[in-house]
């Protein structure tokens, strides 16, 4: 292979004149993490609402939950990104569209909201599966004590459902983190984007992507460790599979 390795490239100043390439990579990592955290927070909240809606005993609520899931699951993430970034300002009333276009850090907010909705559809399925794995008696027991339906979800069903699906939430969070890289298409300078810029400016292709790879692996590890402690904290003493999968 006639490729000229140059690992010192990381310490050379980047095109912006002040930061080294290494620093720009860390900035990229920061934007990746920020986009992932904001996006996944939206996904958790919105996905819970939609997931609950899909198990609600009201026809039109269930249907709208299903439509939400199908729409955001069956359009490629990149296309959704374009819709949020290019199309939404066009279909909004003129003033609102202008306001959106001039929003500072628009790429960041767009990517976070887009990822939020995309992963909300998938989180909704996770939350729904968790809720369906609980026995029907749990819901009845909550209601028999006089809790309203929303209270039953809030205090009885969701706390247990969330605990059951922690592993699925972890893998969804990891997937959301990886998907921040799709933001590159609307100009978000996240980790893959900074590595790509470094490659274009220096032609040190493999150093740039190797660095990005290492940083992604590190980020993955941080998330896995963090979620493992969440999982440990969420363990219910004495609970095996007893509540899951019981009939009526």
């Amino acid at each position: 292979m006639n490729y000229h390795w140059n690992w010192w490239i990381f310490f050379e100043p980047s095109l912006d004149g002040t930061n080294t390439y290494l620093t720009t990579l860390f900035w990229g990592l920061g934007w990746t993490a920020a986009t992932a955290v904001v996006g996944f927070t939206i996904a958790l909240v919105l996905g819970s609402v939609v997931g609950v809606a899909r198990t609600a005993p009201i026809g039109w609520v269930q249907t709208s939950g299903m439509v939400f899931v199908e729409v955001f699951r069956n359009i490629p993430l990149l296309v959704q990104m374009f819709l949020w970034y290019f199309v939404l300002p066009e279909v909004l009333p003129r003033d609102a569209g202008m306001w959106l276009k001039q929003f500072p850090n628009a790429q960041f907010y767009t990517a976070a909201v887009c990822l939020g909705f995309y992963h909300a559809a998938r989180m909704a399925e996770v939350v729904r599966a968790g809720l369906l794995s609980l026995s029907r008696g749990q819901k009845m027991a909550g209601q028999a004590l006089g809790l309203t339906l929303p209270q039953t979800y809030r205090y009885v069903l969701l706390p247990v459902a969330y605990r059951i699906v922690v592993p699925a939430i972890t893998s969804e969070f990891l997937s959301c983190t990886k998907n921040t890289s799709v933001g590159i298409a609307i100009g978000l300078v996240e980790l893959t984007g900074t590595a790509r810029a470094m490659q274009e400016n220096t032609f040190q292709v493999f150093e740039a992507f190797a660095a990005a790879t290492v940083l992604y692996l590190a980020l993955n590890m941080v998330i896995v460790f963090a979620m493992r402690s969440v999982e440990k904290a969420a363990v219910i003493p004495g609970l095996g599979n007893r509540i899951a999968g019981r009939g009526r």
Binding site: Y3, K178, T180, S181, V182, I184, T192, F206, F209, T213
Partner: peptide, 17 residues
């Protein structure tokens, strides 16, 4: 563990070599 976008870039440059 890697985003598909990064993998696409990786192979795009790696495959010729």
């Amino acid at each position: 563990s890697l985003p598909l976008v990064l993998v696409i870039f990786w192979f795009y440059f790696l495959v010729p070599f």
